[in-house]
Design a protein around this nucleic acid. Structure first.
Lengths: 151, 151
DNA sequence: TTGAATGCAAAAAATTTGCATATTG
DNA sequence: CAATATGCAAATTTTTTGCATTCAA
């Protein structure tokens, strides 16, 4: 029986446990960063900052965002890919169910099922011993619309 | 017969022609940038700057490197990919015969034949209408050695 | 209580821009 | 000669760092 105070897993507990297991702490700031990524799906540090600032609470120092994302990435809770020329784009690792397709024309980000990459990843691994991390996979190219516009 | 002055294609001519066709000019600086990329295979703007500076001639302004790479990319002579958290890494488009495999552990860059990606690219195109540009393909993951070290 | 995390401000990097001058074609 | 590029310096933009203070556990 899970009476008051005896619940098996309060929301946030797995996050807390992951942090604790490495001597790190679950702070409200980190919770808000994770929350922002949940909403956003993916975003650069400054977009995360903006999103966090819009959740009602006080804005976070940019350095807190950077350090928070780093910490969460170390734990494997978030991952990043390079969608942009500049900042890395972060997303929840558990959201990595698709690969990002970045249009070089309109910069829009499309998605393809991650399964599509598994075959490729397997081939690379077999041929080279290098194990591709699909959570980091960003493919640049041209979306149908921009392709037409160029021709 | 290709007598003196009648050679069909002096070295540098195709580069000059490509530039000219868009109203741009072939300058010694741009030639040196291309030369540096030929040697390097791939490099970030500051690495290109260092390499160019080491070719005997005077150092180029960093802004010349940035603008030169941009111009050459617009022409399709060079392309870039995101190997790094920071700067984009440039390479000659004609050198894009392999995809870059970036190890998240040691940051070393390995290569795999680009053909390996063609199948994947074809699948993506067919399924989504998005046309991946293999010259921009960078795959992050773990090399055999780092993978072992982690386990 | 105590070590980890935050906020703030300053420092470092990386990239871009304005403009006078030099160069290419 | 005209228009494009360069070099230089200043301005931006992005990310990192140091440190006193706060807070989670």
């Amino acid at each position: 029986m899970t009476g008051p105070g005896g619940a098996a897993e309060e929301p946030g507990d797995t996050l807390r446990d992951a942090l604790r297991s490495r001597g790190m702490r679950l702070t409200p700031q980190r919770r808000r960063i994770v929350q922002a990524l949940t909403t956003l799906e993916h975003g650069t540090p400054d977009v995360v900052a903006t999103t966090v600032a819009a959740d009602g609470g006080p804005a976070l120092a940019l350095s807190t965002i950077y350090r928070g994302l780093d910490a969460l990435e170390e734990l494997g809770i978030v991952a990043h890919s390079h969608l942009d020329h500049r900042s890395p784009t972060y997303h929840l690792a558990e959201h990595a169910t698709h690969v990002h397709l970045v249009c070089l024309g309109c910069r829009e980000v499309f998605e393809a099922p991650v399964g599509m990459a598994h075959e490729f990843a397997g081939n690379v691994r077999e041929a080279t011993g290098f194990d591709p991390d699909v959570t980091h996979m960003a493919i640049h190219g041209w979306c149908a619309r921009c392709r037409e516009a160029r021709s």
